[in-house]
Design a binder for these strands. Sequence first.
DNA 1: TCAAACCTTTTGTGATCACAAAAGGTTTGA
DNA 2: TCAAACCTTTTGTGATCACAAAAGGTTTGA
Lengths: 236, 236
Amino acid sequence: MNNHSPLDITLTDRKDCVTITEWVYEVLRNAVMCGQILPGRSLTIRELAGALNVSPMPIREALKKLSTERALEVRENRRILVPKMTAMKFNELCDARIVLESHAAARALPYINDDILEELKTLDSEIDNARNMKNVEATIQNNQAFHRQLYSANPHQVSLPLIESLWLQLGPFLRLANSQLKEHYIIDRHQEALQAIKNKDALSLQLAIAADIREGVAFAGTLELLHQFIAEPYIY
Amino acid sequence: MNNHSPLDITLTDRKDCVTITEWVYEVLRNAVMCGQILPGRSLTIRELAGALNVSPMPIREALKKLSTERALEVRENRRILVPKMTAMKFNELCDARIVLESHAAARALPYINDDILEELKTLDSEIDNARNMKNVEATIQNNQAFHRQLYSANPHQVSLPLIESLWLQLGPFLRLANSQLKEHYIIDRHQEALQAIKNKDALSLQLAIAADIREGVAFAGTLELLHQFIAEPYIY
DNA sequence: TCAAACCTTTTGTGATCACAAAAGGTTTGA
DNA sequence: TCAAACCTTTTGTGATCACAAAAGGTTTGA
């Protein structure tokens, strides 16, 4: 049974400035995102408290937060688990990302100055480096940083938390699918996006971001991968 | 000082089937949405525990949930308060609503059968009734129910939680602004939306929903109201 | 008069415990 | 053999307490 497989969660070390709850949140969020907790695996407060060597209290708060952000699912009987993916839900999440993120990009455009543009270029070359080193995790992290940097140029940003929730829901599945790929052909549309920013061309920027997302998740949309990972086949 | 004004929160009675935390969440959510807690007012766990006559524990969990949903804001010093509105943020929230909700409507369209259409018509006439009775609260509630019913026709719905977060952020301000109006001229675009649904016309549906939202919040966008309620002037 | 120093009160965080309900075994009985 | 009845263990919820840090007064001293 799935639920008795041992938990293997990466523990980072906690800085004194963050509360235990915040540290637990980061650790669990990372574990979900990196597929360390398989969908369908149910999580209990006491088991996690033991695994992270903290009292049940911070675990409780972190689990509640992740549930509110839809990274975890709370069942009717109050069990908490990593939600399973379905092909239709995958589709909905990708389309919601495209709509929200291209909107957020267009809304950020008027606020992008030369400093921010430089930072975006730096992040883009770091993505290329990570990709050349075949470092999948760093590629994903830097790619998220690029998008986050772009949207948060807008000082009145309200969409980013919603976008992060979508990333959190797609994350585990994308990484599981990614880990099955022998080759990573993925190229991005960041050059087009940067050009559109230079030209202050909102429509081109939206199209570049939409294409970037669509092509970035397309690899996971192949029938074989969907069948391999979706719904039931997660059982150990 | 704002923070010493007495709390006046409507207490509903709690059904045995819901946990205390869930009840507290509903009560506080409603209080925020109805403007019973003014923006800038800071909330403490012990004060609310006293006011709702429960232990601090359920208050803590409910406050955390509302903060994660952006209904409340957590400051650097860990104080929790109802966030203040700014003209720019108001604008961003409305535009995010338009983008997300017209998308959600179009995505729900293929799943709307005759039963759901009938329910939408019923809700629309209930909105008209409430409006004729000059019952502002019932009008808002039924209007939200209409939108929620429409979007959740899609069984793979992922946008609704994001949309509800936006409602939660706009809610207090819209109601405060509404309470200042002598006359409510507001008409909605629900008839157009219903017609578009009958015709299975996704684009018309999107346009109707977009117009419905834009016109529904326009009353609050007048300069006088913005100046009256935005940023600082909430002090008692 | 007024800021610095000090002290008291209030605060959120985290630990611990009790308890009812759910989950999960085991025994029973035909 | 197998489902019903029973019992044990595990679970999330909610209450309570301790404590360090923050907030908010008050006193001091020039």
